[in-house]
């Protein structure tokens, strides 16, 4: 079966019955739009930036930042310099150097953590793959700089932002992360406590032996 066409064309004479009528109809639409733009809310679609700003949604992502707990950005940094984000980053804009102590033992924190935001394409894959809840996407967007090369290379001090900032930016996500981390910390503490307790009881078990031996004596 030959399917029939859906687009109907008026034959030419009908189309041209009143020359210019189609144009006029279109102009009515334009005029309506212009007039309505003064009083109808859905026609007033622009905001006067920078005096006014459109709200950004909590999901909005721009460039990554590093999250730290507590007050000190260095001590509280969640990042362990595992370089998963560095490997997974599609445009390869992350650069990480692991900090080591004098004996070459890993301190599990980054000595250098650079993100070149002139290369970053805001995909959010780093935040997605991070197993340590450390890297998240920021909502900050007014970042123009005079210096193209070094001004757009963000170092650790620029990247580190507190967990409170994250909470303010994305309350839902940050709340979940905080709750999960609390559970983990509690678990770790409990495990540690259990270990300590076990060590204590072992010690106690080991200790009383001579005393029990000694007691009858």
């Amino acid at each position: 079966m030959e399917p029939s066409a859906d687009i109907k064309r008026l034959p030419a004479p009908a189309r041209w019955s009143i020359p210019g009528i189609g144009l006029l109809k279109g102009m009515v639409v334009t005029a309506q739009n212009m007039i309505q733009s003064y009083y109808r809310k859905e026609r007033m679609t622009t905001v006067q930036y920078p005096e006014e700003r459109a709200p950004i949604s909590p999901n909005f992502r721009n460039f990554p930042f590093l999250c730290y707990d507590g007050e000190d950005p260095k001590a509280g940094l969640r990042c362990t310099a595992c370089t998963i984000c560095e490997t997974e980053c599609p445009p390869q804009c992350i650069y990480i150097v692991l900090e080591r102590d004098a004996n070459g033992k890993s301190l599990k924190r980054p000595k250098v953590f650079d993100i070149d935001v002139s290369v970053c394409m805001n995909c959010g894959i780093c935040a997605e793959v991070c197993p340590f809840d450390s890297i998240y996407m920021d909502g900050e967007y007014e970042l123009s700089k005079q210096d193209r090369f070094n001004g757009l290379l963000f170092h650790l001090d620029r990247l580190a932002k507190s967990a409170d900032y994250h909470m303010k930016l994305r309350p839902k996500e940050a709340g979940e992360v905080a709750a999960r981390r609390k559970v983990e910390v509690d678990k770790k503490r409990a495990v540690q406590a259990a270990k300590d307790a076990k060590a204590q009881t072992d010690k106690d078990m080991a200790k009383p032996e001579p005393t029990t031996k000694g007691e009858p004596a």
Partner: peptide
């Protein structure tokens, strides 16, 4: 080729 512009990411 290696003749691309200077790129600051210190890879």
């Amino acid at each position: 080729p290696d003749d691309y512009e200077y790129e600051p990411t210190p890879h």
